[in-house]
Simulated assay, not measured.
Amino acid sequence: MGNALRFLYGHCCKPTTSDDPQSLGPHGVSSSTVGLSALAHDLFHFENTSQVPEGLSKHVVSSKKAQANWFRKLVDAWKDAKPPPRTPEEAARLVILTLKGHKKADVEGLLTFYGLPLPHTLVEVTAQPPTSLPHGVKFEMHTLPVDAKAVADGDTVTVYVSTADPRESSVLPRNVHEAALHRSEARSRRNYEEADAFHKQIIDAGYRMIPFENDEILAKKYRIRLRGIDAPESAMPYGKEAKIELTKILQGKSLRVLVYGEDRYQRCVGDIYCNNIFVQEFMLKKGLAWHYTAYDKRPELETWEKEARSKRVGLWASRNPEKPWDWRKNKRGGN
């Protein structure tokens, strides 16, 4: 069996302990990767037995013989992929490309069987990260990896920036620096009550000690409001979906944030880039946010929203979804 497929199977199907156990799928992985894991498992099984999965025929129109032909092609395609797919979106693209020319009902049925994104929901991001700071940017930050719990909703995330960063070190309050030193010394004496008291001082000042690579980093806390978009509130239709999608793209990643200013809630308003993906473009094309025209007139944001509207993806499945700013206004009026 090919090394690439063996590695993929071992990687995708290895149970994880970082997710909520209730969110784990039948292969012991998170709900966001269970389709990828299941497909990897079935490709592994097919190469050893030449048997396609039971139940697939309920989702496709072609025969078992045709299904076996698909799986042979997919096994070869997966071995040739460099790197192999690591996300449901990447797996869906490989399936679509490999089975190009086959019946649409079969391709979509196969994707549905594994819970992978359908063709019309896949997003191609085009915006490139700027090589120099655009006009209006106050400062740039590079964050530590984002925790899933730090994503508040579809347009707000809490991030931390190491105080080793030159900009942060130049404005680090002396009392915070000293509290971090005292905490470290207290922990070395195993006086954890004293250490926790120093950590509270650090947290109250807007900082935190963040575990990182078997060590701890003193980091500044920032709340980021994604510039130019407005996602549905949590209690609105697609509010939960927007939060889940933003979490999937940000979780565990270090971000590049271009900060333009602050809003009335003391959140930094900025553009976020994650693995060279412009996050606002992604959320708009997914149909999980509006272009916030009251605060941002960029024409590309309008174009990306129109693209999602035309495809009727996400919240645009409804012909007239309620805008979050109207929802908030009505809620304030009701209270």
Rank of each mutant, 00 (worst) to 15 (best):
D230H: 05
P117Y: 09
S32P: 00
G239A: 05
A180I: 05
P232Q: 03
R319T: 12
G35E: 02
R86G: 15
M236Y: 01
K79A: 15
K329R: 15
A289Y: 02
K82E: 14
T143E: 02
A197P: 00
E47H: 14
L5V: 14
F139Q: 11
W325G: 07
I96Y: 06
F113R: 10
S30W: 06
S318F: 13
G333F: 15
K104V: 13
S31K: 12
E90N: 04
P321N: 06
V159K: 01
M283T: 02
A105N: 09
P21D: 07
A197Q: 14
I224Y: 05
D165W: 03
Y292M: 00
H27Q: 15
L218S: 06
V60N: 07
N335F: 14
D263L: 07
E168K: 02
R298Y: 03
K285R: 08
S310M: 13
E124R: 14
G314P: 01
F198T: 00
Q22R: 14
E185G: 00
E305N: 01
L284S: 00
K220H: 08
E300Y: 10
P129Y: 07
S162K: 02
V176C: 08
E241D: 14
K149L: 08
V107Q: 08
F7W: 15
L56G: 02
L43H: 07
P321Y: 07
K64R: 14
A235L: 08
H27D: 15
P88G: 03
K100Y: 13
A92K: 04
L218Q: 02
K149D: 10
E213K: 14
L258Q: 07
V176R: 04
A150P: 00
T98E: 05
R256A: 04
D271P: 05
R167L: 12
K103Q: 10
A231E: 02
G136P: 11
T112I: 06
E108R: 12
H135V: 15
L288V: 02
Y265N: 06
V60A: 05
W78G: 12
V176Q: 03
H41V: 05
Q266C: 11
H182P: 00
K104T: 14
K221D: 11
Q128V: 13
P211G: 07
